[in-house]
């Protein structure tokens, strides 16, 4: 019996597979070597003419050859695909150190961010945001806050006025919102009032005619000095971190008594003032007509001061120049 030279077939297959340039050709090759018109099919047709024994032997052989052709093709195809992926991935080799996206920060002004953060802290213990006018009556800015009419803060060198009788002015403190709020709301009161305040100062490294404060006010039955301490200690820890040390030292504000300043111990061991506070003076509560069973505490904190400490900003002018190099850092 004339057997086909199968080694030759397999050798030719190998050559054929090496020539493949496109994935789709593998199907063609499979057809060529195992399909209807393939040498293998021709040989299979011959099987019927063989003796039973030869048929079995040759049949088995043909099967083996078929398997080996199929597996060679499959293997070659797999290799071809793997190689294709490898080369695709090899080609993709960007320099990832290039920073194309120039956007930095949140695009929110750092003053707003700090105000939000402070509001958020007090909101978490039951305070709501209140606000009031920036052009105020002298009465709300001074008299109602127990500031005597001879007080130097009232001088035109310190305060910006909008009428010649000195009856309206640009508020010098957000404490005015205490009065506005209490005039229009019954106790209990738990509010914070972030906002702009104004002083007669040129814009420079340490002064600005416009700056921001956040005023806080809590009025209820039974609020005591110990509550004031606990509330502000909570704020300081939330804002500066659990491990910050705080101390309260006596101070003077016309509209609180006792009054205190809160200091925090900075990294370098220095104690820095960060806010003023006190028990609301009974005169203030009387001015707004609250009954004697209510009392409470108030505090004020400078937003620029907090921002300067938190981000180590050394120049107040930065806040109001709005230079992009500054804005995009936050």
């Amino acid at each position: 019996m004339a057997e086909l030279n199968f080694d030759k077939v397999l050798a030719s297959l190998k050559l054929r597979l090496d020539e493949i340039v496109d994935e789709a050709e593998f199907d063609d090759v499979l057809k060529e070597y195992t399909g209807k018109d393939s040498l293998l099919s021709v040989e299979r047709k011959k099987l019927s003419t063989l003796s039973k024994e030869d048929k079995k032997t040759y049949g088995e052989k043909l099967n083996n050859v078929n398997n080996s052709i199929t597996s060679n093709i499959k293997k070659a195809e797999q290799e071809f695909i793997n190689k294709k992926y490898t080369s695709l991935e090899n080609e993709e080799n960007e320099d990832i150190t290039i920073d194309w996206i120039t956007r930095r920060g949140t695009h929110r002004h750092v003053i707003s961010q700090v105000m939000d953060e402070v509001v958020e802290i007090f909101a978490s213990i039951g305070y709501k945001v209140a606000f009031g006018p920036e052009v105020e009556t002298s009465w709300h800015n001074f008299d109602a806050l127990n500031t005597p009419d001879w007080h130097p803060a009232r001088y035109e060198s310190d305060t910006l006025y909008t009428d010649h009788n000195l009856e309206t002015l640009l508020r010098t403190q957000t404490s005015t919102v205490q009065i506005r709020h209490m005039e229009n709301n019954d106790p209990p009161v738990y509010i914070v009032a972030p906002g702009r305040v104004f002083r007669s100062d040129q814009l420079d490294a340490t002064h600005s005619p416009v700056f921001h404060q956040l005023e806080g006010l809590a009025i209820d039955k039974n609020l005591k000095f110990t509550d004031l301490k606990g509330t502000l200690e909570y704020f300081v820890k939330q804002f500066f971190g659990e491990n910050i040390e705080t101390k309260f030292i006596p101070h003077f504000f016309p509209f609180t008594e006792p009054s205190a300043e809160v200091l925090v111990k900075w990294n370098n061991g220095e104690w820095l003032e960060i806010l003023g506070c006190g028990m609301v003076d009974p005169n203030v509560l009387e001015h707004v007509g609250y009954s004697k069973e209510y009392q409470g505490f108030a505090w004020g904190v400078g937003i620029e001061r907090l921002a300067m400490l938190k981000y180590q900003i050394d120049h107040i002018k930065n806040f109001y120049e709005n230079d992009l190099r500054f804005l995009e850092q936050f």
């Binding site: 509001v119 909101a123 213990i125 039951g126 305070y127 709501k128 945001v129 209140a130 209990p188 738990y190 509010i191 809590a218 209820d220 609020l223 005591k224 000095f225 110990t226 509550d227 301490k229 606990g230 509330t231 200690e233 909570y234 101390k247 309260f248 030292i249 006596p250 006792p258 205190a260």
Partner: peptide, 18 residues
């Protein structure tokens, strides 16, 4: 002042910033 204890009262406006 630093010899006073501290207590934390909770206000009446939970979950409302206005």
């Amino acid at each position: 002042f630093n010899n006073f204890s501290s207590t934390l009262p909770i206000g009446n406006n939970l979950n409302s910033k206005g």
